[in-house]
């Protein structure tokens, strides 16, 4: 592909003198030449690994047993995977993680977007503050939330002090509470992204629609349901799609806050793939899991495109 583009650009250099106006630029290879650096890098990091990963997933390849080398096993990794209970358990946890994260981010992100869409004194300062979590490293969010949700941490102290709970909750070391804690940290880190997307949508709703609704005697609530929500449908679909995919592929919180524990209760499928590769060194099986993630992602994107096609 790269070579084709290089030869095309040589052709364009030779034909340079004949081109005299911008209108004729499109006729030759110059635009491909401009695309080349981006396409080459994207191929190295995204397209090539996809092919190599698929190839690996058809092999028995474990770095713990390097003397066995790579053995072609066909779909055996996939058959083994689909028979493992742990695989379905990690899929179930992934669903919990994704639905919890997306729901929370959408709710908080929507409230923030609606508030920031009003005109008030100090709005730009409020906007800057609310968007900060998006800019900070995930590692930071993980450390801070691990500190706050420590069994001896401030969250338990506050809840005990307010007599909401009578015993400290072992947030990150309990199989029931670890996932919700991770989801809260994730919502904190990621809701600003939803806010940015929804804010853009809110700003594109024509003022006249609100004025018309007011003339019809609509209150705040009626305006919200009949003007704002329908007007936001397009960007809302984008926000749901992107947050779903980002949550699906995320491993950072699991890695730092719980390492998938306690008792695998936060081992979502992406982290399952990571651990199979880099802790168990079973690269063949890890590639099969990673490919299942790829397929799930593709299905979600496919439905999104269908949905957008019908609108």
């Amino acid at each position: 592909m790269a070579r084709d583009m290089a030869s095309l650009s040589e052709v364009s250099e030779a034909g340079e003198e004949r081109v005299s106006s911008l209108a004729r630029f499109g006729a030759n290879a110059f635009p491909y030449f401009l695309l080349a650096p981006a396409l080459i890098i994207l191929s190295v990091i995204f397209i090539y690994p996809l092919a190599h990963g698929l190839w690996l997933s058809l092999h028995d390849y474990n770095l713990n047993t390097p003397w066995k080398g790579m053995q072609f096993v066909g779909l055996a990794n996939y058959f083994e995977l689909f028979q493992e209970r742990s695989f379905y358990q990690s899929l179930g946890r992934t669903l919990y993680w994704v639905v919890g994260s997306v729901g929370g981010e959408l709710a908080v992100g929507m409230i923030a977007a609606l508030l920031l869409n009003q005109t008030f004194v100090g709005r730009s300062v409020a906007r800057a503050i609310i968007l900060i979590p998006w800019a900070v490293p995930t590692v930071l969010a993980a450390i801070v939330f691990s500190t706050m949700f420590n069994t001896l941490g401030i969250i338990n102290e506050v809840l005990l002090g307010a007599r909401i709970i009578s015993q400290p909750i072992p947030w990150l070391s309990s199989t029931d509470w670890a996932m919700p804690t991770l989801i809260i940290a994730h919502i904190w880190k990621s809701f600003p992204f939803v806010t940015i997307v929804l804010l853009a949508g809110l700003q594109s709703i024509p003022r006249e629609l609100y004025e018309a609704a007011e003339i019809d005697g609509a209150g705040e609530w009626a305006k919200f349901w009949n003007v704002t929500i329908p007007g936001l449908r397009g960007v809302m679909v984008i926000a749901v799609l992107l947050t779903t995919i980002f949550s699906l592929k995320g491993v950072d919180f699991q890695y730092i806050m719980t390492y998938g524990g306690p008792a695998d209760s936060t081992k979502v499928i992406a982290f399952h793939a990571y651990r199979t590769a880099f802790a168990e060194f079973d690269f063949g099986m890890a590639s099969a899991i990673a490919f299942v993630i790829m397929i799930i992602t593709s299905i979600i994107c496919f439905f999104y495109l269908q949905l957008r096609g019908t609108e």
């Binding site: 990091i45 995204f46 190599h52 690996l56 590769a277 990673a290 992602t297």
Partner: peptide, 24 residues
């Protein structure tokens, strides 16, 4: 199609890429 290809790589699950990239 090229524009779609560039944009669609945004959806790529990073964990799927890291395994072969580590080996290479």
């Amino acid at each position: 199609s090229l524009a779609f290809l560039v944009l669609s790589t945004q959806m790529f699950p990073l964990v799927t890429g890291i395994i072969p990239l580590y080996l290479v």
